[in-house]
């Protein structure tokens, strides 16, 4: 662990670390929406294994999507709507 930190430090202040995290954070939506390529997914998962903060961001993003799709109530279509659409079509055309 220690040598890794030294290595990163020697490369310049947090440079590679920040780049990875910001890349991964830009991929969050692609990943949870199933739009990432397999390469992107691989890169993403590898990074998550070693970065707790990105791991947590991913959990939060997934949770948010789940809350929206799971908790937002669907409105019920008025029964008369299909009938009135059919009627309007027949009378106007």
């Amino acid at each position: 662990m220690e040598s890794k930190f030294t290595e990163v430090y020697q490369k310049g202040p947090d440079d590679s670390y920040d780049t990875d995290c910001s890349k991964v954070s830009e991929m969050l939506d692609l990943i949870i929406d199933g739009e990432a390529t397999s390469e992107e997914e691989k890169y993403f998962n590898t990074h998550l294994e070693e970065c707790v903060s990105c791991f947590e961001s991913h959990q939060k993003q997934k949770l948010l999507k789940g809350i929206i799709s799971g908790h937002l109530k669907r409105v019920i279509v008025p029964e008369s709507l299909a009938l009135s659409i059919r009627a309007k079509i027949q009378e106007t055309l």
Partner: peptide, 12 residues
């Protein structure tokens, strides 16, 4: 309601 009706009329 109005928006959906209009959409279906256009689609037809």
């Amino acid at each position: 309601n109005d928006l959906v009706q209009e959409t279906y009329l256009k689609a037809y």
